[in-house]
Simulated assay, not measured.
Amino acid sequence: MSFQDKERKKIGIFGGTFDPVHTVHLIVAEQAREALGLDEVWFMPAHIPPHKLEKHITADCHRLAMLERAIQGNENFCATAIELDKKDDKPSYTYDTILSLKAKHPNVDFYFIIGGDMVEYLPKWHRIEELVSLVQFVALARPGYSMQNEYTDRVIEVEMPQLDVSSTIIRHKAFSGESIRYLVPESVRLYIEENGLYES
């Protein structure tokens, strides 16, 4: 993921826990890529999300492995372990990650993709004033969530198909022994079964 030429690239960063990655993650990433003319979308699993400090999260190695299987075959998608490679147990702050990415890739314009439900929380993000000057935020429009706050004019809104699938639903189904076929890519479903993830 390094660009040697002088031409600037447009890269979308899609962060999340991806526990597990599911079909809708892939759909919205592709929709955002096309709508914004992005060269690539990098899926970035979080190590310790600040808003989920009290929740159990599946081991980093499993979440990354599922991501790599899910995006296999799409040359415009890749997974980055930049946050997983942190060796401490401190929360993953987007500000620190973006600074690191921009230092490593000076010829890239980064677009940080978030769900529309996260826009209302932007004022609470770590060092948000500096962050909005470093990266272009992109919000995936979802009904029922407020997109209005002091940072709204710094966010590009992208219309998305409204598909109600979440990692929480998938974990609950897997825990209950219910089918998750087609909710996740087949390679991910097989990985979950082979490794006994989310079982009761």
Rank of each mutant, 00 (worst) to 15 (best):
M118P: 07
V28A: 02
H172Y: 06
D19R: 07
P143K: 07
D109V: 05
L183T: 07
K55H: 12
D39V: 09
I113N: 02
N195L: 04
A81M: 07
C78T: 13
R154C: 03
A46I: 07
A81L: 06
T80H: 01
K90Q: 07
W42Q: 02
R69V: 15
H172K: 10
I13K: 03
S179G: 05
P20H: 01
T80N: 07
V155K: 06
E30Q: 07
F14V: 02
F110P: 00
G37H: 05
R8Y: 11
K6V: 03
F3K: 00
L67K: 02
F137P: 01
R33A: 02
E150L: 10
G116A: 15
R8D: 04
H56R: 10
R142C: 12
D109F: 09
S2I: 07
L183A: 04
I11K: 03
R181M: 05
A70Y: 05
H172N: 12
C61L: 04
E193Q: 08
D117C: 04
V108I: 08
E75K: 13
K6H: 08
L197C: 15
K124V: 09
P50E: 01
P45D: 08
R171F: 07
S166V: 03
T23P: 01
K102D: 06
L197D: 10
Q148H: 13
A59D: 15
N74M: 05
R63T: 07
P106M: 03
D153I: 02
R69N: 10
R154W: 00
K102R: 14
A141D: 08
I98V: 14
R171G: 03
R63N: 13
I71Y: 07
N195W: 06
E159V: 09
F14N: 01
S166P: 01
L101N: 05
F175L: 03
E34C: 10
